[in-house]
Design a protein around this nucleic acid. Sequence first.
RNA 1: GGGUCGGUGCCCGAGUGGCCAAAGGGAACGGGCUGUAAACCCGUCGGCAUAGCCUUCGGAGGUUCAAAUCCUCCCCGGCCCA
Length: 435
Amino acid sequence: MADISRSIPCVLEELQSRKLLQDSTDTSLLAQRLASGPVSIYHGIDPTAPSLHLGNLIGVLVLRRFQLEGHRPIALVGGATGMVGDPSGRSEERNLLDADTLAANLSGIRAQLEKLLDFDNNAVLVNNYDWTRNLTLIEFLRDTGKHATVNQMVAKQSVRSRMQSDAGISYTEFTYMLMQAYDFWWLHTNHNCELQVGGSDQWGNIAAGVDLIRRRTATQVHGLTWPLLTRSDGTKFGKTAEGSVWLDPERTSSYRFHQYFMQVTDEDVGKMLLQFTMLSVSEIAELVEAHQREPQHREAQRRLAFEVTSLVHGSTQASAAESAAKILFGSPVEKVDEAALQAVAQEVPTSLLVRTPQGGFDAATGSFSLVDLLVATGLATSKGDARRGLAEGSVYVNNQRASSSAATVFSDQLLYGRYLLLRRGKRRHHLLRSH
RNA sequence: GGGUCGGUGCCCGAGUGGCCAAAGGGAACGGGCUGUAAACCCGUCGGCAUAGCCUUCGGAGGUUCAAAUCCUCCCCGGCCCA
């Protein structure tokens, strides 16, 4: 590896040291090509939702890295292929998207991409529906299908595993690979695209495109993949118990987004800094070293969370998430000023504190039942769960542990007369607010 | 279509008339830790409630003092035969 890296120019070397290089077509050829001038490079994104998620972020950031080196990124949103469905990594036939959903998804994704890639400079956003829409079957079979053998296609792991499953694979999904190959060919022909990048599950599809272009135009283009992310605990990357981590703040608030990275385990933090931030490799090495010396400061996680949140939501949001976390995870809530509390309200689930029996209010004593408040805020799933929580000491009022014997909250405990910060366990917060 | 085995709590899975809110494992959650980490230890894990009560074992009926367990019909899945 060491002897190769000497001949690899900047970007490839960079990707390699960031653990973002899994497979590629002939490395030395690709290296030569990248060294000789700007290359157009494409990465495809499935528009299955109106927002990107963390899984997509890697790819977009790879494009960004290329763009920073002077290359030209082409972000392809798969309007057409989204209607077909990629069998890669899927055990079941996929639901196809209808035109309206697709249009909505495309516009959502476009907005997010604009923050990460510089379209005013030379980045391009394309939708493969534009050139697939008018493609006739005959044309496709003659110019594309002709160059692919079924033997080869069937040999692909993604296809084979599905053929062996009970559900099978539809002809439609089977053809996906060729559509993606066609995209590469089209971009090669019309945008002079010479490199396709993707996650390692895309390798088969990328290779199919490289083959197609060689057969049709007798030119050598390139492909490159990064390893699919796994976390050391084996859980799927970018997923929480609640589901995917989205870039859309409506789906995953910037605070939660920030928290996702704050809570990354020590084992993964170095790799994630490399793959998700634009910090230099050497700076990351220093950070990781410092972190290993004093892991309790969580400097690496803090930096990771801030950097990624800044990239996606902007540094203002990142700072807001950071200071909210400082309050929520610090101890003496009484010292927090009201403005900060209001800021926190933007970040964590908040609801209205109402002085009614349903809201857990006892007019006779002017106090609230903590059990009822916990249920009302969703911090407990039932009264039994709430009592259990109190018994095991997992309930905190204004960051102070509450006990079963003192399960009432009096009005004078409200901060600034109107805020009440509830917490269940270490990291589930809820802010109650009255008028 | 015939045969056969099965459908149990978030998941896997024991239980085949009362001792069953239902073993065990996993996940999850909480506590102890420390660091919003991991590992580990402990605990919780249907609901309401002071003992106790109520609602659950694919669905609907039935037998019985008593059913997840027995009977009838229906729905769904695996396997074998056609």
